[in-house]
Structure formats: C-alpha cells, structure tokens
C-alpha cells in the first residue's frame, strides 16, 4: 500500500482578528471526527487555540536558542565580534562587551570568529512546545516566553518537531501568526496550501492584498475564506474574482458564533452552515493540491 503524503494547510490572514483561530480549531476538530488530524498553533507570541481544545497533555518541552556569553577574562578586546555582528547584538563599549540576547539571531559568527574563544555559545530558554491529544486530534502549541523578541527560531523548531514526531498524520493544519512579516513566512514555508481568512471590509481587503503578495513571493497556492460575510461591502469578492483567487467559503456574520466563541466553544456542530463551509474548504484544497 502506498501512503499519500500528508496534506499540510496553513491558516493565515494578513489582518489580525479575522478568524484564523475560529477556522483552524473548527476545521481541525471537524476533520478529526473521521481521520487523524494535527493542529499546530504557530502564533507563538499569543497562541490561543488551546482555549478551544480540551484533551490530555502528553508532553511539555523547553525550547532553547543559542546565544553568546562574554568571558571577560579570556577577552582581548580586539573588537572583531562587534564589527562582525550584523544585528548589533554584540557591541563593544571601551573595555566592556555587551550581548543583547533579544537581538541575537544565533548565527554563531561572533563566537566562531573570536580569536580568544571569549564568546562561547550557551543555551537560552525562549519558549515551550506542548503536545495535547484528544481522540483523533493531536494538538501542538508553541509558546514564546514573554519578553522574547524573535518568533522565527521557535517556529522553525516547531516545524522540525512536527516533521520528526508527527510527520505521518495525514491532515495537518497550521494556525499562523497575523501580518506578512518573517513569522508568517516561517510558519507557511512548508505547507501545501495557504488559506487566507479575511473580512469584507476595507481593512480586510487592504491586508488581504498584502498577504496575497507575500504568498505569491514564496510560491504558495492560496484560497480565501470570507468571515463575517454580510457586513461591509463586496470589494473583497471583486478583488478575488479579478485576481483569480478562489473563494473557498463565506462564513455568515452571526451573533451566535461570537457568543459561542467567547465561551470557548467550537461552532461546527452548532451552526448549521458551518460543516458545509468546512467541507467546501477541504475539498477545494484537495483539488488544488492534487493538481499540483
């Protein structure tokens, strides 16, 4: 028997607050009714999928990044480190070397080039990865420590972990951070398809355009889900039609969804049209990915 490779879906948005979590958690829970499904919360700066997943915690692991630590006794104050660091995370002020661990990108350049070996690399805890299971659903939450400035290293480590320990789960959903910067690119880099969740407002459209451009740049097929359909105007639909971007589903603006959501409830089994929307989304994605 030949196993199909897993289907990896990124849920991203551009604009924040459009419904990534709503879609990710409901899609994952719904799909897990019939087959093993993985949900990964990669919005490491403010993960919130856990509010909607109730299960058993299997493991919590500390995640580290490597940063240089100054050995004052070994240092000859030659200045190579501060001239080398592209991120100005290592600076020399007279007879003192300061390391700013939040700015450090763990590139090892200062440490490797130091002729005195005065900048050994050390582990620095930046966050945690938690694994929770609930029936057919495996849920992974990646959480960055408060005060850490860089999400990307933890997102990369989470992808590596998923690949290693859960690579065989046939359906994988990655809830991505909002925006269009490095964390989004890191989150979506190995998915097969990106769903962009938006709302039919000028703000939704503006940020959707940016997200579409970003995904074009990294060659990802995209589809749009319009959440809170019925408010605002039809500009998002017009834009999608003109740009040739498929609209996978329209989730109607419904006060009941907001009420359920604010109580930490899933909605797919309580709102009548929701399962049809989720079915349409997954079918459309499977069609696009199969063709590629």
């Amino acid at each position: 028997m030949i196993n199909n490779p897993p289907l990896k879906i990124g849920i991203a948005s551009g604009k924040g607050g459009t419904g990534k979590t709503l879609l990710s958690t409901n899609l994952a829970a719904y799909l897990s009714l019939t087959q093993p499904t993985l949900l990964v919360d990669l919005d490491v700066e403010e993960p919130d999928d856990f509010l909607f997943v109730r299960g058993t915690t299997q493991s919590i692991t500390d995640q580290y990044k490597m940063i240089p630590v100054w050995d004052e006794k070994a240092c000859t104050l030659c200045g190579i480190c501060s001239k080398t660091c592209k991120y100005h995370a290592v600076i020399q002020l007279g007879s003192i070397i300061l390391v700013f661990k939040e700015l450090c990108h763990s590139c090892y350049a200062c440490s490797e080039l130091c002729p005195a070996g005065a900048l050994p690399m050390q582990k620095h805890k930046m966050g945690e990865i938690k694994t929770i299971t609930s029936g057919n659903l495996t849920f992974i939450e990646s959480r960055l420590n408060i005060g850490e400035e860089q999400a990307v290293p933890l997102i990369h480590q989470t992808h590596e972990r998923v690949e290693k320990t859960h690579g065989d789960i046939p359906l994988q959903i990655f809830d991505c951070p909002p925006g269009t910067s490095c964390p989004v690119v890191a989150s979506t880099r190995n998915v097969d398809f990106v769903v962009l969740v938006t709302e039919p407002t000028p703000f939704g459209l503006n940020d959707l355009r940016l997200a579409v451009e970003t995904m074009k740049e990294i060659h990802k097929p995209v589809g749009v889900v319009i959440n809170r359909y019925g408010i605002g105007n039809s500009d998002v639909e017009m834009y999608c039609r003109e740009a040739g971007i498929p609209v996978l589903a329209k989730i109607r603006y419904d006060r009941r969804i907001a009420e359920l959501y604010s109580n930490g409830q899933l909605v797919y089994d309580k709102i009548e049209d929701m399962q049809t929307s989720l079915d349409n989304i997954i079918k459309a994605i499977q069609n696009v990915v199969r063709k590629n």
């Binding site: 660091c85 100005h88 600076i91 002020l93 007279g94 300061l98 700015l103």
Partner: peptide, 15 residues
Amino acid sequence: NEAHGAGTATAQKIF
C-alpha cells in the same frame, strides 16, 4: 539600512 539593532549600533557610536 539596519532592520534590527539601530539602538545598540547608535549607542556604540555615541560611546
């Protein structure tokens, strides 16, 4: 031209 670390780079300069 610096995306990151402008503050520390300038601090080095003022030093």
